[in-house]
Design a protein around this nucleic acid. Structure first.
Lengths: 242, 242
DNA sequence: GTATGTATGTTCGGCATCGTACAGAGCGAG
DNA sequence: CTCGCTCTGTACGATGCCGAACATACATAC
């Protein structure tokens, strides 16, 4: 086990200048994010923004029927709580921890102070937001046009990109919630991938064995978002993937 | 026919203070947006932002296969080209005129100048962007969970909200492109609505006869986005709908 | 070891949407 | 008026996903 995570494990925090880091880091608070924890509910007024290190958080939209769909994934590559600096304070989405780990959080007011005093953070946040928008939009398209098989591949890639190794702890039931499909649909798709030797799974633990193959089997949506993110934040993610 | 449209017909421009209007308006250029005109292609470097008055522009994501889906709709309520101020300069989407009309455009550099000198415009743009994000996210969910019938209702509401009357010029083929479904699917859904007396259509012209009924038949997605937009930009859209 | 809960596997009919094909109907150009 | 084009209507089987029900297997607590 490594010791406590460093703020720089978050790519956005790491991308700040030394001066900005010196101003902000004293105000960061390390928090543990257990699986399933809800960081905010639809409409909640946010108090903090969260910069994950090794945790993953899903932004979920929940329908009146209770059905839900994940519109984006945030890990060490980003932050949760853009509504705070976008000015809206809240959003209609829910933030749920998809993979347990740690994050650093910062009071919204501190963030805004830094914003107004120095443009650097603002520029970074805006660029990140644009990357996030791309992910959301591509998700919308993906939901419309691609099969569960393809979407599962895309989802697995998004997840392991944000984790330290090729393994993730996640039941098929939870994945189904994220993708907005039936659990049985995920079972079938995952079964196919296991038969192909692309992944291996067992009661809530999934290991990706053949990443290149996974990328081939995925729809284009993964690559589109990745390319755009690399373009928008090149120095932030020199190599998001291993 | 009314004369040339005024900049204030765009809700964002109208929401600016008199001082900001005085600084910006001299730089606005009125342009005509014919149906089908492509304002920008995926990856294009944007030179201007566009503030529609009576035109409607769709943000489309186009797949490798050529299939597409509309991610959001922008009319007098917004602007096209957020990538310019978000810092990315371009996006993977395509901007297509869905309903002909006029817009005022502004050189990206002018917008940025105003940004850096006065925070007012920045705040407004960010709030608008958040509203746009909401629309995108809800679109993703809607694509996953709702029927063509429901989505057509949602789409009609989004459109007439941005038009001066209850009529729109739009073939079923084009609507199908927007929704990312078959043209025949739209024909069926539209046929049902016409039988119910909710709409009336004829070779590319659709008239909404019973708006309340349309809202009932729509999925919740329309209301969710509308409520959130009202919250984020209350003074900008005192009453978006008639 | 047994009991209980959780995770996964399988099956079945049902339905929305798709892909394809073609037919009629309105409209404009010549 | 007629030709040609666009827009709309209808039908067909195919298919991917759904809802529901149930079986199996592993995991942990007691």
């Amino acid at each position: 086990m490594p010791g406590l995570p460093a703020p720089q494990q978050n790519h956005l925090l790491a991308a700040l200048s030394v001066e900005a880091q010196n101003r902000l880091f004293p105000h960061l608070e390390l928090v543990s994010l257990p699986l399933g924890k809800v960081l905010y509910e639809s409409g909640d007024s946010l108090r903090h923004v969260y910069f994950p290190t090794n945790a993953i958080v899903s932004l979920l939209y929940v329908m009146e029927s209770g059905a839900s769909a994940e519109i984006s994934v945030v890990g060490k590559d980003g932050l949760i709580g853009i509504a705070l600096f976008m000015g809206g304070e809240s959003t209609p989405s829910r933030g749920v921890v998809q993979s347990a780990g740690y994050a650093y959080r910062l009071l919204g007011q501190r963030l805004k102070d830094e914003f107004n005093r120095h443009g650097e953070l603002l520029q970074l946040m805006l660029r990140y937001t644009q990357a996030l928008i791309t992910q959301m939009a591509q998700t919308a398209v993906c939901n419309r046009h691609h099969s569960i098989d393809q979407q599962l591949c895309r989802w697995l890639l998004l997840s392991i990109d944000r984790l330290p190794d090729n393994q993730l702890t996640m039941t098929q039931e939870l994945i189904a919630n994220m993708l907005g499909v039936r659990r049985e649909g995920v079972t079938e798709a995952a079964g196919k991938l296991q038969k192909l030797g692309v992944i291996e799974y067992n009661r809530g633990h999934i290991t990706v064995l053949d990443r290149p193959r996974l990328e081939q089997l995925s729809c284009e949506c993964y690559a589109v978002v990745k390319k755009e993110t690399d373009r928008l934040l090149p120095y932030v993610f020199p190599r998001l993937n291993r």
